[in-house]
Design a protein around this nucleic acid. Structure first.
Lengths: 362, 362
DNA sequence: CTGAAAGCGCTTACAG
DNA sequence: CTGAAAGCGCTTACAG
């Protein structure tokens, strides 16, 4: 724990000069003094105290990412993107799993505020729950006015996100792709309706159906949690409902993967009898069997963009919102609907699922 | 950015008294003074400056987790465990993806040292590369002597890990389980031989074979990276090698999942023709098709234990190494070997893979 | 180009 | 129970 005082003494210079050298300040120092300081620092294994420095500057070179759950591949990928951009700039990244609990979120932001974090990036969607969100805006306001950056990568209650995904457009494109494959009976696993992203994606589903001239069937829209279990449960409800279905579109990949697994357990072939598609394109999506058709989001890039936005804010530069592209990726989990079943379904509204014995599909 | 000075002024007390109240120091303060300070703090939205506090204490209430890649579910789960234990104690968690690059790792630890992080937890295995690891021990030594905690959750070059997994025993148990199923030709996807964990798991494979009285066949051991792609590539090499195989045991789940996928692409049924098993039991292992048989590691619990070890070290308490249990979990990806093929293979050493047309399996 | 001094926001002996 | 003062390790006007 050597301090700059000892470095200065050993180098035979003042603390001021030592500081100017080790902090790489833009300030004239003679070559020999510089060399002596550097050598003393090396010999003493001097590492500057970032806390002391942070006390004088406005904040610590640390950026926090608030995620719902770091264990969700969607968020892990974003955090990695933030880190990839932050590391070269000398920033460390703090991850906070809020579990979508506004109280935990507030507490985390309070802690971040006390640590004078330079930026906080909200990776997950906001929750529509104004009463519980009371504290958060106060903390964010205080951080902002203390010069810290605040970035949102998803829709939220407090305004437009700095990094924006066209959720509705992405889902609508996938609806279109399924329709092009021949599907007309497309179920939608919607995620939690309290989440702003989930709402946008649901809107995309409705829009996609409207564009294709398909009458929406409320029985085909299932509200779920945003994980494997939600996908499995939704399949059960769908099958119990008895409505005709040839495709299932899920509001995220985790739901889709859970749905595929449940369909397999029920003896229903994917994509032979039912096509399944997701959203996000998390890493495992391409490794499942069958590989998942999905709408790709550049998750890592979103993390990088998030940090870039923070940097701009910290530098006092103008920060225009960025819109991030989505792309439909068709893999093995989608196919044309079973021909016979499809025409029968169209003719009398029967469920192709029940009418179609396993293995008889194309 | 209100400071304790303003709180003290508004409350009409000295800074000392205000400090004693807001920092919850164990020091007598009159009830009315306390109340006035608390109220002033509330009114001013006072949040103490953790940097100033950290400058006086030995360190900042922050714990870092060094992982290979936060995007790997293995590490995400551990980080979550650390966070679950750290949050109630008021610690924030910093994640550092080192990509197994000793230079990056050193740089991260230097940064952590400069921030006076209270603890650094190494989640991943050490690399056997003494030359490159030169800087790391110096930083760790400095942190330790500054009172910070250092925890290892995996084998490494610098001694015994604080939290220890019986890697060899776990793999050997899975070999045993496969043998019990009737397998004798068990390939092993070993991971990178430079990683200490990978070596321990390979040793477990050898031990398992020895216990079962099976002659090891060097063609069946494939060194790989530790990801999906490594599993796929290993399957290709195995099939090209032409050695008889009825089961593939992978040193981690990512490898196993990549292998299953590649086998499916090659038209080989899992587990009908070939059984596949992994190690770790990451969350997706139970959702793949077929669900993955694996050796369960209590990853989240390991994270919690890691933080607990750090807390003990910080408190100056004795910190005995903990050994964490492993458990064989048999799911859909393993089954008895195809009977005909197995006996033929035993008789003349032919490959059951080639001899067994798709779908003819039990 | 160099250095003495003030100050960032706290905590903690020390004296009362 | 209360408060004045020193000091943690830096940076940065300010004077030379």
């Amino acid at each position: 724990v050597t301090s700059i005082t000892e470095v200065a003494r050993r180098a035979g210079v003042s603390v001021s000069t030592a500081s100017r050298v080790v902090s790489e300040a833009d300030y004239p120092v003679s070559a020999e003094a510089r060399e002596r300081v550097l050598e003393a620092a090396r010999e003493l294994d001097y590492v500057p105290n970032a806390l002391a420095r942070g006390l004088l500057k406005r904040h610590l070179p640390v950026v926090a990412v608030i995620v719902h759950d770091i264990t969700d591949p969607y968020f892990a990928e974003i955090v990695r993107g933030v880190e990839d951009a932050a590391a070269p700039a000398g920033f460390l990244v703090i991850t906070c799993s809020s579990e979508r609990d506004p109280a935990r979120e507030s507490e985390y932001v309070r802690l971040l505020r006390s640590m004078r974090a330079a930026a906080v990036i909200f990776a997950g969607s906001g929750l529509d729950d104004p009463a519980l969100n009371a504290e958060l805006p106060r903390h964010l306001g205080a951080m902002r006015s203390a010069g810290a950056a605040v970035v949102h990568l998803s829709p939220h209650a407090l305004g437009e996100p700095e990094i924006r995904v066209d959720n509705a457009g992405g889902i609508a494109s996938m609806v279109r792709a399924l329709v092009d494959l021949g599907h007309r009976s497309i179920a939608f696993l919607a995620g939690p309706s309290t989440l702003y992203v989930a709402r946008e994606r649901l809107a995309g589903y409705s829009r996609g159906l409207a564009v294709a001239g398909i009458e929406p069937d409320p029985r085909l829209v299932i509200e779920t949690t945003f994980d494997h279990a939600g996908g499995a449960a939704a399949v059960d409800r769908l099958l119990a409902g008895g409505a005709p279905i040839t495709a299932v579109l899920a509001a995220n990949d985790l739901l889709a993967i859970g749905a595929i697994r449940r369909l397999a357990e029920r003896g229903i072939d994917v994509p032979g009898q039912v096509s399944v598609a997701g959203f996000d394109d998390i890493a495992i999506a391409s490794v499942t069997a069958p590989a998942l058709s999905t709408v790709r989001l550049p998750l890592r890039e979103m993390g990088r963009l998030g940090f870039a936005s923070a940097e701009r804010q910290l530098a006092g530069e103008p920060d225009e919102p960025r819109v991030v592209p989505t792309e439909v990726v068709l893999r093995g989990s989608t196919a044309p609907p079973p021909a016979a079943a499809a025409s029968r379904a169209a003719a009398r509204g029967a469920s192709p699922l029940r009418a179609q014995p396993r293995g008889a599909a194309s």
